[in-house]
Design a protein around this nucleic acid. Structure first.
Lengths: 341, 341
DNA sequence: CAAAAGAATGCAATCGATTACACAAATCTA
DNA sequence: TAGATTTGTGTAATCGATTGCATTCTTTTG
């Protein structure tokens, strides 16, 4: 029965052409009022729905954008995606999501799939695409598909980005810990081949330098973002001849793990030891000992990324419509690092 | 330059027809080895990428599925979506996400948009679609687009669903609380016009009945899933002449709020008062006083939903390919409700 | 009233890929 | 070697919507 109605079905029903139907539905002024009314009524009666695939093929615009993230189910990425969806929905775009699990080949595969699907833009948080595979990115640019990096970016010509100022976040956090009287600050780093982690490290380093505190390589530990690695790293720190009296973890989960270990060892937080996380995961606020952390305003990041995309689409012709938006991080100073109020 | 290569470009380059190119690319056995090789090489050299829109239009299959959820950035939904993506990705499907914010008109709008976009299936967690608007659902079924409800469902013919056994979850939780010695168990309910909340209520009720405990209407409070409403509800309970000695909250967030209030009042958990949540939000595990909760295995739910969709697609012809999968909830009994180990 | 202008609609190509059918050339069979 | 097969390609329609360019029918104008 009403399996699928096309403009041809409507045309046949009314003994007119599909062209006329199309024009009537699109409010083309060349169509007479009477015909338009008839078409609209019939379309409604026959339950017509425009086939967006056909439209997309003809117009070259799919009204889809692709979003590539390492994984969906973390508070940060889920919130960014929400922001993107809410920024793009009113403009009639739909969001296709892809996960990479931080694997380079998945990253490449996803880019290709999205290009095949003729998306109108790609928003991605890049993870491990090596230099030698930059041409996959170049291809996107060549096809004039707007490409926007968020959070994790790469310096590439013609690619816009929306990030937070990781250097500042890290610098200010370290300053804060020093101001709280901590002079031996350990640092949990993520993979420093990623710009965000390199920036954060720089901020940490510079703050120490500016306060005449020597960098202690023993205090710098590479971790993955999970509770267990935080526990292990803390354990290792406590075995040092001179253990630190603060930890700045670039992961909230690792910060939590560290706190658990410290407590096990009977260390009082924040009196004996301060801990600062990164990411504002919901749990940091809920803990009995609330965890200080850096808020990256993911929702806003998503909305801004959506806006940057829309600007690019609307200014396709303009020579250079590249923009690098840097959002300001917010330090949420909570109990785990508050000695002096 | 390499703006866009089509099979026609390849055909022209080789002085053959687009048909031949298409066949060569699709490994059609009728094509000679030499031609096939030539086409593949040329396609590669010219950086050809199949236009999936064209393919979709011709074949009637877009290889996209739509996922409709109230919002993306909650642990539960984000995890389900992850599961769906991971179940569908290997089969070449892409996932389009839509948010409803629990608004009926958004729900309708999203269904329509997805139908226009010619998705091959719709997976949704329904919220507030009233009976009178069931025809929007019917339309999906009429178009023979597989429709799968997950978590929140509605009894509709021909619609598959993947849910957890909310009744059992609730019944067992209540039994557990009673076994811990709680005889005055308050209940935080969600909107009972949703099947899941109605089921959970039934489980609570039945467990009390089975243990000869009278239902006290004062103990039953409707809340939204957030910390503040949990605090307020707990506050209200404590002003009762006979306050309860346990709370079963169908929201982890409200459970947390309640715990905070109880502590403020100097009530000891679990000694004086047990609390049980629902949803296994990450923070419930991380708290110093870990919160007992029900795990809904969202990742698995997503994967199963994906599988159900794939089965439906592959058995289109079969009369009835409707399936109602019910996953078993897992009670995570943690500190907030453990008096007796 | 003839010619020009205007209004409303039809015709046909297009977007890119697939595929039933037709056809030519090469190979085989008796 | 005529006729039957097989093999490899080409032709053209199709999916559904849009749109430049006719074309037809009115209406206006001088």
């Amino acid at each position: 029965m009403s399996e699928k109605t096309t403009i041809y079905d409507i045309a046949k029903e009314l003994n007119i052409t599909a062209a006329t139907v199309s024009r009537a539905l699109n409010n083309n002024p060349k169509i007479s009022q009477s015909t338009r009314k008839l078409v609209l009524e019939t379309a409604n009666r026959m339950n017509y729905k425009q086939n967006r695939l056909a439209l997309a093929l003809r117009s070259g615009r799919s009204n889809n954008v692709g979003v590539i993230v390492p994984r969906i189910n973390t508070n940060f990425f889920a919130s960014v995606i929400r922001g993107i969806e809410e920024g793009l929905h009113p403009e009639g775009y739909q969001v296709i999501i892809c996960q990479t699990h931080e694997e380079e080949n998945r990253e490449i595969e996803n880019i290709n799939t999205l290009l095949n699907a003729q998306v109108d833009g790609i928003l991605m948080s890049i993870s491990n695409l090596s230099e030698e595979n930059n041409h996959y990115i170049e291809r996107v640019i060549q096809k004039k598909i707007p490409l926007i990096f968020f959070d994790r970016k790469k310096e590439i010509n013609n690619v816009s980005s929306v990030t937070i100022d990781d250097y500042q976040a890290s610098y200010q956090t370290t300053q804060h810990l020093i101001a709280q009287g901590c002079d031996k600050i350990a640092y949990f780093s993520g993979d420093r081949s990623l710009e965000i982690y390199e920036e954060r490290y720089r901020g940490y380093e510079q703050a120490l330098l500016d306060n005449n505190i020597a960098i202690n390589p023993d205090y710098i530990i590479n971790i993955k973002s999970n509770v267990q690695e935080g526990q292990e790293a803390a354990e290792k720190l406590l075995t040092l001849a001179t253990p630190p009296n603060a930890i700045f973890s670039t992961s909230d989960f690792a910060a939590l793990g560290a706190i658990q270990k410290l407590k096990e060892h009977g260390i009082k937080i924040p009196e004996d030891f301060c801990v600062f996380g990164f990411g504002n995961e919901p749990f940091t606020k809920f803990m009995e000992l609330s965890i200080s952390t850096v808020d990256q305003s993911p929702l806003e990041m998503g909305k801004v990324a959506a806006q940057v995309f829309l600007d690019k689409i609307n200014n396709r012709d303009k020579k250079k419509s590249e923009s690098q938006v840097v959002l300001m991080p917010k330090l949420l100073i909570r109990q785990s690092s508050t000695r002096i109020a």
